[in-house]
Amino acid sequence: MSNVSLTPLFRRSIGFDRFNDLFDYAMQSDAPNYPPYNIEKIGDNNYRIVIATAGFAEDELEINLENQIITITGKPNEVNPDTTVEYLHKGIARRSFKLSLRLDEHIEVQSADYANGLLKIDLQRIIPEEKLPRQIPIGRKTEQVIDAPKEE
């Protein structure tokens, strides 16, 4: 795989230092295909990750969030296989998995629910007030008041 340099893009941008890392992460060819999952936008600032985890019990799944990376792991409890069963087709892949997704800095995990073999994780974009769009007045300088020590 060839390396792509994004240096020319950085000349006209400010604060996109992590963009290069994100681009490299997206270009990796080892994207997981198990378990299948959806990422849904269910509102202006609401998202949902839905993961198909057929055959897993709720206590066999774990969700962790660290440094804006959400990691969902599934580890089936070791059960003695039934040696009297002969599979003609075994299509339910009840194997361990680890799925990691990078979240934007203002995305927060709200809740997680597990029903009917689907793990649903609700996310919400919460933008701090200082990051909301605002109009910058032209020609007005902000006055800074500096408290000078009072002479006695």
Rank of each mutant, 00 (worst) to 15 (best):
M1A: 13
S5A: 09
L6M: 09
T7Y: 10
P8W: 02
P8Q: 01
F10W: 06
F10I: 04
G15A: 07
G15H: 00
F16L: 13
F16T: 07
D17R: 14
D17S: 14
R18A: 08
D21A: 14
L22A: 12
L22V: 10
F23H: 10
F23C: 03
Y25Q: 13
Y25T: 12
A26C: 12
A26N: 06
M27G: 05
M27K: 07
Q28P: 03
S29W: 09
S29T: 15
S29M: 09
A31W: 08
P32G: 10
P32I: 13
P32H: 06
N33S: 13
P35A: 02
P36D: 03
Y37R: 13
Y37T: 05
Y37D: 04
I39E: 01
E40D: 10
E40G: 01
G43W: 01
D44K: 15
D44A: 14
N45Y: 13
N45G: 05
N46K: 14
Y47E: 00
I49V: 15
V50M: 07
I51F: 02
A52L: 10
A52Y: 13
T53D: 01
G55I: 03
F56S: 01
F56T: 06
F56Y: 15
A57M: 07
A57E: 12
E58V: 08
E58P: 04
D59Q: 09
D59A: 04
E60T: 08
E62V: 04
E62L: 12
E62S: 12
I63R: 10
N64F: 09
N64V: 13
L65R: 05
I70K: 04
I72Q: 05
T73R: 09
T73V: 07
G74L: 02
K75D: 10
P76G: 03
E78H: 07
P81K: 06
D82I: 05
T83W: 08
T83V: 09
T84V: 07
Y87D: 08
Y87W: 11
L88P: 00
H89K: 15
H89N: 15
K90S: 15
G91R: 07
I92W: 02
I92L: 14
A93V: 07
R95C: 01
F97D: 01
L99V: 04
S100W: 03
R102D: 06
L103A: 01
I107T: 14
E108D: 14
Q110I: 15
Q110P: 00
S111L: 01
S111G: 01
A112V: 02
A112R: 13
D113L: 05
A115P: 00
A115L: 14
A115F: 12
A115E: 15
N116S: 13
G117F: 05
G117T: 05
L118F: 11
L118G: 00
K120L: 07
K120N: 14
K120R: 15
I121A: 02
I121Y: 03
I121L: 06
L123M: 09
R125H: 05
R125M: 08
R125Y: 02
R125E: 14
I126P: 07
I126T: 15
I127G: 02
E130D: 11
E130P: 01
K131A: 13
L132C: 04
P133N: 04
R134D: 08
Q135L: 13
I136E: 09
G139I: 03
R140T: 14
T142K: 12
T142D: 11
T142Y: 10
T142C: 04
I146Q: 14
D147T: 14
P149I: 06
P149A: 09
P149D: 08
K150W: 06
E151H: 05
